[in-house]
Design a protein around this nucleic acid. Sequence first.
DNA 1: TATTAATTAAGAATCATTTTCCTTTTGATG
DNA 2: CATCAAAAGGAAAATGATTCTTAATTAATA
Lengths: 154, 154
Amino acid sequence: MTRRQPAPPEQSQRRIEEMTEALRQAGQRITPQRLAVLKILAGSSEHPSVERIYEQVVREFPTTSLATVYKTLTLLKSLDQVLELGFAHWGSRYDGKTPHPHPHAVCLICGAIADPELPHVEEMAQEMARRSGYRIDRHQLDFFGLCPDCRKKA
Amino acid sequence: MTRRQPAPPEQSQRRIEEMTEALRQAGQRITPQRLAVLKILAGSSEHPSVERIYEQVVREFPTTSLATVYKTLTLLKSLDQVLELGFAHWGSRYDGKTPHPHPHAVCLICGAIADPELPHVEEMAQEMARRSGYRIDRHQLDFFGLCPDCRKKA
DNA sequence: TATTAATTAAGAATCATTTTCCTTTTGATG
DNA sequence: CATCAAAAGGAAAATGATTCTTAATTAATA
């Protein structure tokens, strides 16, 4: 018997469990729709948009509404289980694999998003706190340009 | 005779000249409405929103439309004469004093924005370019938290 | 398995921003 | 100065992402 849905890699599996656990601990229900959203978040490194997540959920649950996806994302955000990359002009993108704030590179042509580890991020946040007098709780560090593919083509 | 409008401080004056010059060199007209927007940008350190800019322009030119403010900002952006801080959920804020990309601290309660100079920003951009393979053209580095005033009150 | 509070679906509403389309202004030229 | 074409402005409609509303459905558990 062949598996129709490939089993999620264990790292993704672990994230799914973390997220469901976080929902449970917050007294939230694990509905099929939520589970679907959450699997997509745990399984994709593309930093999907709401629309993209919605497309995939609808395949499994055709009656799903966009609002449900938004609500689930809002819920997961409030539990720090997904990182929202909020952009002013292109709509938000979501990172469910690494939900704590970290820097991203965004391609201005194709919208690809990369997030290599960068050193000295926390130092910079602390330096900002010190110099501004603000208490810093989170950050969003976005670097915009062209991804390797689009550089070739451009 | 008392001046009704206080003369702009010379730093602000210099920026106004830079901006008008940039418009001229781009073959763009310096209309009264544009000049009004541009003065506000050059003169305010509060990183005003579109609405805020509009309010002030309307005082001088009561028939001004919001669209004109938007159009002027788009124009100035395209000439790199204003920096747009694009936020997903609160609308954009604008920096006309320091139009090149630089980090900001944003208060989650009152919306105050500070931008102290931070070292190592360029290094970080280069490091991101190196590790991601992207060509980095610009960035938006936002640190969110509470400003000194709101810390006291909270 | 029945109960009930939570959740969903669908569409309407909202908000920032952009576009459209028509009028006014501008600046060059005669 | 008058004329004219192009640029810019104004008002309102359109857009697009997101949030809200309401009634119907469903998950968790008694």
